[in-house]
């Protein structure tokens, strides 16, 4: 009651200033997020280039997509990226959170240390791993020392993609660990104790107590990481090079958008059509994760 009278007083006093306060935010959001979004949807149906205003070409860009081998390569790699990265990012950070959950001496140091890759720029992370995975780098030195021999992590098309996935997982572990840590704090201790009294071992308790308790967080992490994984750019760009590895076979969809649409000769129309595919797949991924969640619940 009291607060609603205060609200009406506030309104009487301020005719214009609410919009004034929100104006900078609305302006920036409108001009640099929503307008580009709409303009992407429009441009996808034109043959616009960076320096040439486009004409309406109907579905020509989308028809071209179907016959563009690079598009299928990009779609394949971005999809593989989701399949490779998401399971690891749903499970490993949860295990890590369980490891750092107990307040044993020094644990805050470990938590912070595990978060360090999140803080570093993806460029730094990418270049660190390019050097680690180099033909003559640390990992190959170690492999040679133990007698395995050197592996061409950055020269083989598939090893390169897998290495990039590993780097994405490495950089994301700490971030999702913190999210899981918050969720684990809400799991009632009594559940674990009851299960332990019933004779359930650690693995069994993980499956029957921990996982059900943090299920919604797992779905959240799955949704966040799958959308991020599909839009992968920097890791692959840095590790495979701007042209996407041997014969461009490691190009991802967003790399293709960047390569096609920028520069003075950029094909804005075609790159916009590629972007529309990115939007559509992103939405589909979200819906798939949410549906999988619902189905498992029932």
């Amino acid at each position: 009651m009291a607060s609603s009278t205060a609200v009406s007083r506030v309104r009487r006093q301020l005719p214009a200033s609410p919009w004034l306060l929100a104006a900078p935010g609305l302006l920036v959001t409108g001009a640099f997020i929503l307008y580009p979004f709409v303009s992407t949807l429009v441009n996808a149906f034109t043959d616009r280039r960076t320096l040439i205003p486009g004409r309406f070409v109907g579905l020509a860009n989308f028809r071209e997509l179907l016959h563009d081998d690079m598009f299928w390569t990009g779609l394949r790699n971005s999809t593989l990226y989701v399949l490779g990265v998401v399971p690891a990012l749903v499970v490993l950070p949860l295990l890590l959170a369980l490891l750092v959950q107990k307040n044993i001496p020094g644990i805050t140091f470990f938590r912070s240390a595990f978060y360090t890759p999140v803080v570093a720029s993806i460029v730094v992370v990418g270049l660190i791993w390019v050097w680690l995975l180099d033909e003559r780098g640390l990992i190959n030195s170690l492999l040679e020392t133990i007698g395995v021999g050197r592996v061409g992590f950055l020269s083989d098309q598939w090893l390169l993609l897998i290495s990039a996935m590993a780097v994405t997982v490495w950089k994301g572990l700490g971030y999702y660990m913190i999210i899981y840590l918050a969720a684990l704090g809400n799991v009632p201790r009594e559940l674990h104790e009851a299960a332990a009294v019933d004779g359930a071992g650690a693995v069994r308790r993980f499956r029957t107590v921990t996982v059900p308790a943090v299920r919604s967080t797992m779905v959240l992490v799955g949704a966040l990481s799958s959308v991020a994984a599909f839009k992968v750019f920097s890791e692959v760009y840095l590790m495979a090079g701007p042209s996407g590895g041997p014969a461009g076979e490691d190009t991802t969809l967003v790399m293709l958008v960047q390569r096609t649409g920028t520069g003075l000769t950029g094909r804005v129309g075609y790159a916009s059509a590629l972007s529309v595919v990115v939007f559509v797949v992103t939405v589909v991924l979200m819906l798939l994760v949410l549906r999988a969640d619902r189905r498992e619940r029932t």
Binding site: F32, Y35, T40, R48, K231, V257, T262, S272, S275
Partner: peptide, 11 residues
Amino acid sequence: PVEGIIIAQFT
């Protein structure tokens, strides 16, 4: 998704 509008942001 920012990656999807980056070309339009550039133009």
